[in-house]
Computed example of a mutant assay.
Amino acid sequence: MCEIFCFNSNMPKKLNSCLECFYNHSENHPHGWGLANMQSDEFVIDKEPVKATCSQYLKDILSNPVVGKNVFAHIRLATVGEIISPNCHPFIEMDGNNRSWMLIHNGTIFDYPILEKYKDKENGDTDSERILLYIIDKVNEFEQAKGAPSTIKERFNLLTEIVNDLSRSNKLNLMIYDGEVTYIHSNMKESLYYLKNENEFLVATTPLDNNENWLQVELNKLFVLDDGNILYESSEHDNEFILTEEHERIMEEFLKNIDGE
């Protein structure tokens, strides 16, 4: 699958050392990399369908300070979709009220037929991009019915419902940014960790250093992070994802097809 990274803080911070450690994991996740730095409502996004450690483009980026308070990164091990730039995370999409959303995903959608209708609308061919398009449709439906833009609390409630439903039978480790706040969700044990310091969160698929304060993200809950603190936390759902031999067979078959191309 993939690895994901998020930094959320009330103050900008230089993150080069954390990002370099994260991208060094790409030996096992060679199908692309992405970096998103949210600066004053502007989404600065770079991505490439190249192994991160082999990317001169990424080396050039990291040779300069990467400073931000909302920063996201992704390295891809493909389970759905070709090895092309449109399939690299992060994905971005604008809702009906001109709010830009960003999503990165570590997981696979094995069973959620509703997403099939987005195959003709997405730029690439990943299940992850379909998740974002589905979320945008749900947000638009809610705001059209309300007749006004949604509040953060309303979007949190809506995403809680969506995530609770999507997580049935699917691995759904998500990081989402809606232009104001960050949403974090994990439903598989030992697949997402966080390090909390004063007014900042660092979240990653695996701990990025030997700091003993890294903890596993609590499973089956949706968290909203804002300025380095938890703003909202959902109740716990029952959809923990447990990897089976059948899941592994499906993913191995896909990787064999990629290697054979």
Rank of each mutant, 00 (worst) to 15 (best):
K51D: 01
I84G: 03
V67S: 09
G107K: 10
E20A: 06
L166G: 06
N239P: 08
M11G: 00
K13D: 00
P49I: 02
W33T: 15
T205E: 13
E141T: 04
N24Y: 11
N98P: 10
W33C: 09
L15K: 03
A73T: 10
Q216N: 11
T79G: 07
N210E: 13
D120N: 07
D259V: 00
F7Y: 09
K69W: 01
F142D: 07
K171H: 09
N123L: 01
M188H: 03
N37Q: 04
N28S: 05
N257G: 06
D95S: 08
L202M: 12
R155A: 00
E246L: 02
S191T: 14
T182I: 02
V44T: 12
R249P: 00
C2H: 10
K59D: 08
W101A: 06
S128V: 05
K196E: 01
C6W: 10
H185R: 13
P90G: 05
L215V: 04
M175D: 05
T151H: 14
K14D: 00
E253K: 11
F91Q: 10
P113H: 01
E42A: 06
L115R: 12
S235P: 04
K121I: 03
K69T: 00
E3L: 15
I135V: 15
I162K: 09
T53V: 14
P49V: 02
L219G: 12
R99T: 14
F22M: 11
E129I: 00
L243Q: 15
K117A: 01
F72N: 06
H89M: 04
I176E: 05
C18R: 13
A36D: 10
L172G: 08
I230P: 02
A36R: 13
C2Q: 10
I92Q: 09
L158H: 09
E245Y: 12
D165V: 00
T79C: 06
P149G: 05
N24K: 14
E218N: 06
V50M: 14
L215K: 15
I45Q: 07
F254M: 09
H29P: 05
Q216H: 08
F22A: 08
N173D: 02
G147C: 09
D226Q: 05
N8K: 02
T205I: 07
